[in-house]
Design a protein around this nucleic acid. Structure first.
Lengths: 181, 181
DNA sequence: AGGTTCATGTAACCCGTTACATGATTTC
DNA sequence: GAAATCATGTAACGGGTTACATGAACCT
């Protein structure tokens, strides 16, 4: 049985905060900066059903007087455990290269799911991974020959700048966590 | 007939620069910062065959004396046209929200595929789209209540900072293009 | 009566991931 | 002769995208 998808974890993370219907969840995605995780019913409803089949969430139909009936989902204990397992995963090089969005999502829920100490240590891992990775990108950029077109170099530079921004952000945020302790 | 995938355009963009085998392309992905577009043969070889079926690329088997035989791919005229069509697409809000990586890829090839003036006008579009979008994110962050956990706010802030970095990068790069004119 | 929002789905299609498979050639 | 690299594939699986479909309730 392989792990749920990023979208599924996004759903579980939201259900961890409060029970909700598929429609609620979709509305939240659309109206929030989490739109990038899909706003389409063809993704959300099947994902919810899969999660229910695996008993990470449970649902009950609500017949509210005068209102439309809707199916309300809530996270189960098993779902919470799965969410914790996911949130506690380490920060790998591969995550940084190919799954930065998922890392950010994990972090977004971390305070609630695992507590602030975990968030701080997540940031420490991220800082150390980025500190190691960014120079290799810089080296690659510096090694690019004259034949590489300007837009190619600029494109790489934009990626590097984004990583450097993330690194600075992580250090600053970490400092906030450490001050609060 | 729908458009090729991002990976397919990455392959076409590389083939635009020089003919190459599947193995070459894969090696390049692995050894360059473009690793995020997939490094797996199970994605690359089928993608190449699909492109060939649509006649965007053409291949011939090379029997090199003493060396292993390999299949060399090159871009066709139709492929170049398709690459140009893709590169010339506008910058939409949705691109900025959900397909930033593809935008960067388009830009990376743009100097060669469409010329520097196109790169400059791409950057202008990007600047205008980001200038409009970033404040809505800021507003969302500012409107977040006390109940939202710290890591949630920080996560959003990291996204905003990345967009702001990209905006500054775009402005600076645009200035370089305009100085060169 | 008609349009909009609420609310939940289904089905076809495509493609990326993962894992496996094969054989030739170079290297030690 | 064994291991690593070159080089190209195939097959199962899962899930996201797009588009379509349905019906209730609310608003005007």
């Amino acid at each position: 049985m392989d792990a749920p998808t990023t979208l599924a974890f996004a759903l579980m993370g939201l259900l961890h905060q409060a029970p909700a219907s598929g429609y609620d969840l979709r509305k939240f995605f659309i109206s929030s900066p989490m739109k990038s995780f899909s706003d389409s019913p063809g993704a959300i409803y099947p994902a919810l059903r899969r999660l229910e089949k695996r008993e990470f969430i449970r649902s009950q139909v609500q017949d509210r007087a005068g209102l439309r009936r809707r199916r309300l989902f809530r996270l189960t204990a098993a779902g919470q455990a799965e969410l914790k397992r996911w949130a506690a995963l380490g920060v790998t090089r591969n995550d940084v290269i190919s799954h930065m969005e998922e890392l950010t999502l994990r972090f977004a829920f971390m305070d609630q799911v695992l507590g602030r100490e975990s968030s701080a240590s997540f940031l420490r891992s991220l800082v150390s991974e980025l500190t190691a990775y960014v120079p290799t990108l810089r080296a690659y950029l510096d090694a690019m020959g004259e034949d590489v077109p300007l837009s190619g170099k600029f494109a790489l530079e934009s990626g590097i700048l984004q990583y450097e921004t993330t690194l600075q952000w992580a250090r600053k945020s970490l400092a906030v966590y450490e001050r609060k302790k």
